[in-house]
């Protein structure tokens, strides 16, 4: 059975500026049939986050369908939420609760009594068990955010721009964690604009622009196919710029 099956996903919004309807996500499809790390790349506003939020059951699906482990999100969002883990771009939590209390709370929301220390051990934060999230550094916050997403031992983990704003050390540290989780049998789907991240981590990537997937495949295949620069090795960044153009997106 496909771990993740997304077919013709659509979402329209009314633009606050022009008051006109525009398609944020326009017929996105992909299939993940084996455990892997899958990356969605794209400039700002390409529809990456909206695509993820529809699969996660946070945003209503206008058209098409998304199934996680065979369960249709539109039909049974709560069943899907039980088997996925989500890390959002913003990671703020209730005030004045410690990491331990927050993890236990998240566990409860899935009906689990979890061992907070063991979970923090996994993301190398066990010494911060009594700290509050606001006392953590950027990298620690992201690792904690992943720990929160792991309380239900999800089959699929969604990470929305996990390394944005991190320094190189914290970034590499987080990559190691993501690889480790994947090796333990978890499918991970992430969005990023960091091409190095996509090349290092992802088994497959999709490049999105203006609500559509415009290229999909293994990073190396895409480089061979689209990078026409004279660089000896070639890289995904050239592919990205070739496919999405050089104009600036806001």
């Amino acid at each position: 059975m496909d771990i993740l099956k997304v077919e013709g996903l659509q979402k329209s919004y009314i633009s606050p500026e022009t008051k006109e309807k525009f398609k944020a996500v326009d017929g996105v499809s992909f299939f993940l049939d084996e455990i892997q790390i899958y990356g969605i790349l794209g400039p700002n506003g390409a529809g990456k986050t909206t695509t993820l939020e529809m699969i996660e059951g946070l945003t209503d699906i206008d058209g098409g369908c998304a199934k996680v482990d065979g369960v249709d999100v539109s039909l049974d969002p709560y069943a899907v939420k039980q088997i996925i883990g989500v890390q959002l771009q913003s990671n703020e939590y209730f005030d004045s609760l410690s990491l331990e209390e927050l993890l236990k709370l998240f566990g409860k929301l899935y009906g689990n009594n979890i061992n907070a220390a063991a979970l923090l051990e996994k993301v190398d934060l066990v010494e911060k068990i009594r700290a509050k999230p606001e006392e953590l550094s950027g990298g620690q916050k992201q690792r904690f955010s992943i720990a929160c997403a792991l309380v239900n031992e999800p089959k699929v983990l969604f990470l929305d721009e996990p390394t944005t704003g991190l320094d190189p050390q914290a970034k590499h540290n987080l990559w190691d964690l993501i690889k480790q989780l994947n090796h333990s049998g978890m499918t991970i789907m992430l969005t990023t604009h960091n091409m190095e991240e996509a090349e290092t981590l992802c088994h497959n990537v999709a490049i999105m622009n203006k609500g559509k997937i415009i290229a999909e495949g293994k990073p190396q295949e895409l480089i061979e196919k689209y990078d026409s620069s004279n660089d000896e090795k070639g890289n995904l960044e050239n592919v990205f710029l070739y496919l999405t153009g050089r104009e600036i997106f806001d």
Partner: peptide, 16 residues
């Protein structure tokens, strides 16, 4: 809670 994204974080879990 909404402005800070806390509600959103809660509602990716199966809470009703």
């Amino acid at each position: 809670y909404r402005r800070r994204g806390i509600l959103k974080r809660l509602f990716v879990t199966p809470i009703k």
